[in-house]
Every structure is written in structure tokens, then in C-alpha cells.
Design a protein around this nucleic acid. Sequence first.
RNA 1: GCACCCUUAGCUCAGUUGGCAGAGCAAAUGACUCUUAAUCAUUAGGUCGCCGGUUCGAACCCGGCAGGGUGCACCA
Length: 507
Amino acid sequence: MLEDNLNETQSNDTNALIERRLEELAELNNRSINAFEYSYDVDSFSQEIKADFEKYDGKVVSVAGRIMAIRRMGKASFTHIQDDHGRIQAYIRKDDVGEDSYATFKLLDIGDIIGIRGYVFKTKTGETSVHADEVKLLSKSIRPIPIAKETTDEKGNKVIHDQFVDKELRYRQRYVDLIVNPKVKEVFIKRSKIISSMRKFLDDSGYLEVETPVLQSLYGGAAARPFITHHNALDMKLYMRIADELYLKRLIVGGFNGVYEISKDFRNEGIDRTHNPEFTMMELYVSYKDYNWMMEYVEKMVQYICKDVFSTTEFEIEGNKVNFDGKWNRVSMVDELNKILGYDILKTTKDDLAKSAKQHHVELKGGESKGKIIDELFEVTIQHKLVQPTFVVDYPVELSPLAKKHREKDGLVERFEAFVVGRELCNAFSELNDPIDQKQRFVDQSKMREEGDDEAHQIDDDYVRALEYGMPPTAGLGVGIDRLVMLLTNQSSIRDVILFPHMRPND
RNA sequence: GCACCCUUAGCUCAGUUGGCAGAGCAAAUGACUCUUAAUCAUUAGGUCGCCGGUUCGAACCCGGCAGGGUGCACCA
């Protein structure tokens, strides 16, 4: 038994395995061994040593990492340690490291972090290894990790036994997930590279990365319910932003040629496979451009990221072969729907649309605008069929209070969304820069709000004032980063591309 | 918000008709100086998610709650 005060200093879900390791820790202390060292001079990494054995053969290296396997054979032992990019085996002989050091090694466990110095060699079975002359404990692990073991079958495929798969534990304790499931780590490395690559593409275009307020007294730029918080000193309600849009366009008014922001937005909605309450969005605004230009820009940007990060534009996504290369399909939302429904949706009545909605099993509550019904019909009839990257262009004005009226088609705005395997990749439009029209749209939205639509846009008078000073013609774009990463890494849940997805508190 | 499913040892999972709580890995002790899911022997390890009910008896049947998953709804 250990003293009570020792137990109180750790998390309270202790067990016999942890108590056993605390006893080992006490024994290490008795031997004046620091179980939590200050630093270690690492000069080599597992992956490089294994990839370039000829260069390292016989050379003395210092490596460090977490013990993932130990095979003891009396006076000699093998261990695998895992560093940032892989694992390497070490061979530890009592005769080489000395009696005391070998006795200390016997007190170590899977999960402990150690440093090893020794020369690189290949075992008689051909595995690149480090023949240790020094083993140093760097950090003791007192909580056992859920260790999996690997074998290789006749075909050379890796088979993982007893893998740590409990999704709840994996998300709540992502640090453990990352230790024992290397493929998880790969996804998050890809995520980071996708964002860097996007940033590089935007920077190389000459656009300026900026930061705008997360805490806002008026929220806008999207249709969503916000998180509400409170500022104590000012004693006022503040909202967490649901979009960056209105502030970024104020900067276009201010004279920047192009601005973008990659940041978290917050929406107070349900949580599911494609929604996390905080998520990452990239928004870009470029002056003197319209949505036609932006379509080409999106194509180029996505193709650049694909080639930069994955060295290909061809992807396997949910069993579909998808190619991002070349010019993407462009379809008109209205034309496609007219073909399917057999009449002109812009000239027809709301009642006819409601009938069509019923035929296509779209549930309406009543009170939806004409544009909303059109959008619902689009989702069930067309969206899910869009496998290859496709721009859907020209949306009903009711759905897009910040987009500019179509230059030719009445009742529509110049807006597009890109879809891949039925999923939205981005949303963009020619930005509305007529302050009088914008004011009217806000007023219309506020009527919808009064009629019970709590996601309708708030009136932002300061934004209208900014437009009154004059905003150049501008193209705007929003890309949901989490969903882009889901697509490119073929993950079906947003939780698998967010390191710490939101979970209900458990303990 | 609704429906269905899951919750058993640190991890992965069995658990028959309601009748003593099981295995593999991990752990401990011993043997073993080229092993690799090391091997061999021995040992220990449980609030069967929580609360209640039915029953002589509940991991198992019933009800409620919690957490999680999937689908639907919501999400321009």
C-alpha cells in the first residue's frame, strides 16, 4: 500500500497496475535515479536510421522515445521504442550496459520514455537496431497504455491485434490514441500540411492574412444560432462569431486588395458526424473579382493543395474515384431543377413547389420561403449525385442575403457551391456591395426573424455604413477546413479530423 | 429532439435456457545473452456503466438514468 497523500496527487481512477508502477517509481528513487529527467541529447530518429541503414551502419547514435515492447531473455533484452515518426529496436546486453544499468532497465515498463545510445546494426533476422551501451530513463509512465501487437501475415500485410478502438476513449484521451494508433497521427499531419499549403497558395497570390474579432456584439455572415457569452467589465452580452465575413469585407472597404482568415467559428447546433460546435473556416475576399473568377481560383487552389500534400489529384473517397484535376463541372441549380420538375421554378408559385417537394419526400413545416423549398429540392434530387467536383451556380436570393443580384437572371444571386461525393466543399459569391440593396436584404431578414426564423440575419448598421463609403466589386469564398480534410483523408466523421472533438463531460 | 444499437479485468473480446465471472494481450514471480504477437512454468487481476424492479437466485429478464455509436431531424 502507498501513502494516502501520494494517491491524492494522481487522477483518482487508480488500479493495481498503477500501484505496481508507483512501487517501481519508489524503488527508482531509492536507487537515486531521477525518473523525470530534464533533457536528453537526441541526434537521430528511427525512420531515418532505418531508411538509410548504410549511412548509419556501425555509427553511434542517441535516440529517444517511448517503450512500446520489451522482450527480456535473462541477461539480454530487446525493446522497441517509438519516436515521432516510427519505431526502432534496441538490443540491450547486461555485459554492455553494466550490471546496475541492466538492473534499472528491468524496472522499466512499456510506456516509459527512455534514451538509448549505441551503435547501429542489423540483427541476424535483418532488423535494423541499436546496440545499446547506455540506457537512460527519461520519464516514468505510471499509467499503462493500451498496447496493441503487430504481426505480419503471409502476404506481408500488417495485422494489429487487440487494437485500441473504443471511440469514446480515443476521443476523450486523444494523447493515448496518438501513441498507439499511428494512422491517427498521419491524418493530423495531413491536416496540418493541407492548411500550410492553402496558406502558402493564398500568400503567394498576394493576399493578406488577418485576424478579426471572435467576440462580437452583433453576429452575422451566416445563418446559424450563436454561442452567447458575457463581458463582465462592460456588463454586456457578446456572441462568439458564426462567420468572419462581415469584418473581412469591412477590410476590403478599407482598401486591402485581398484578405483572408483561417480561424474557428462557433455555431450552437447539434453535434453529429459532420458538425462540431467549433470548427475551422477559411474565408477569402478579393477585390475587383466576381464569382466566375473565384471558381477558377478554387480549382487552382484545391489542385495546388492536392499536388503539394498528396502528390496527386486523384482520390478514393468513400469508394468513389474522384479527380480534382482539370476544369470542374458547372451546373445551374435552376436549370437542373427545371429539368427534373418539368416547369420553370422561378415563374411558378410556392404552392407548386410545395407539391413537388411532397412528391420528392421533402418534409415541410409550412412557412418556408420559396428559396428554401428550392434548396431542399436541390438537396434531395441533385446534390447527392454530384460525385466529381462540381460547381452549382446561381441560388435563390432569399437564401443569400449577402450575395449580389445576378447580372442577368431575376430572383437569383451570383453564388456557387462546390460539391464532391455529395458533400459541400465551399461556398462563394459575388459580394453584394450596394448599400441600399444590402439594407433592404437585412430588413427582409429581420422580418423573417420576427416570423420565427431565429437563424435569419441580424441587421448590422455599421456594416451597411461601411458599404456606403463604397466597396469595390469583390468575390468572396468560404471553405470548411474540417470537411476539406475529411474529403482528402477519406474520413467519414469530423471527430476523426479534430484532435479534441467536443464531448460531454464524463468525470 | 426522435429511433435503434453498445457499455463485462488496464486493452481487445467471449459469456449457452436466469444457476460458482471467462480467454488472449498487458502485469507479477522464476528460467533464458539475437528476440520480434519471443518462449516455458507459476501467480494475481472484476462495483459485469449507475439506480431500481421481478426472482429462491440477475452480467443475462423488466423500468429508469448516464455516456458513447449509427441513422433521421436540424445544420443557407
